[in-house]
Amino acid sequence: MLSGDSMGAASLLRLLGCITYHALLLADCATNSTAYELRPTRLILQADSRVDALLAPLQFPGFAISARGLRQVSGAVALYVGDFELRSRHLEAALFFPVPPTLRFFSPQDELRNALKINELQNRLLQYRLQNLNAVMVSDFDVPTLSGSSRVVAQMLGQCIVDAPGCQGRVANLLQSRDEESRVERSSGLDAVIIEALVVLCHEQRPSVHLGEVAEIANALLTRNEEVLKLKPRKVSAIMKKMGLISCRLDSGGRGIYLLREQCALIHRLGSHYGVASLVQGLPGCPHCRDK
């Protein structure tokens, strides 16, 4: 996902067009003009409203679109977003590349001048694909120190590196700062605050808790973080539901959740994911803190 300087982005996409698999330089996001059986690398210079709907099928092999029958369109994509605001939640699994204004302009003439070199690279890359296709398919490369989408991107890039542990290892370095940013983002969001409140309640060994109580603790945490926002039980319920914690009517006091072993384990797992501070040390004697 490219952002930043537009001339630089056009130049970069043109260069990528020389050394990627079945590259197609496209001026828009239409998929109907693209031959599906070529599995092209789509290098798109202009994002438009169609991208949001196409992110999932482009990104995840196996998810088809309906276009004169079911079509698989997944494949590598580089997209210049520019000022266009994408809304899809699938965006977070993308690799972001800010295009610096200092890039040299790579022109069609440069392409012609380098034709021999480009052909050599294409031939070597093809041999690399053919020789390593099976190894890439069964690769279980992982960087457990990364989290969330950074870990997924690291897996994708690292799986494609065969017999070069040095290059493979550098994938983790590339994604380190992105991972740190998203950890901070995750841990300061509303989801994280609500999970932190639920962790507190788990540690109090409460059998059940009302939404109002969760909201009260979450609001105290927000105040600690100098936020003026106040969460209402209804909003707490909606956020909890999104995370798989579905409330029910507990008693005459209203809705809430039972903190059974299963729910406490899930709350702790979510707490680790969101980087909840109190789980770094853990509570001595809490079985879930020990297991997480």
Binding site: Y21, R39, T41, A94, R129, L133, Q159, C160
Partner: peptide, 11 residues
Amino acid sequence: ASFFGDVIALF
């Protein structure tokens, strides 16, 4: 990675 777009997800 673009050379393995058919076996991995990449965006």
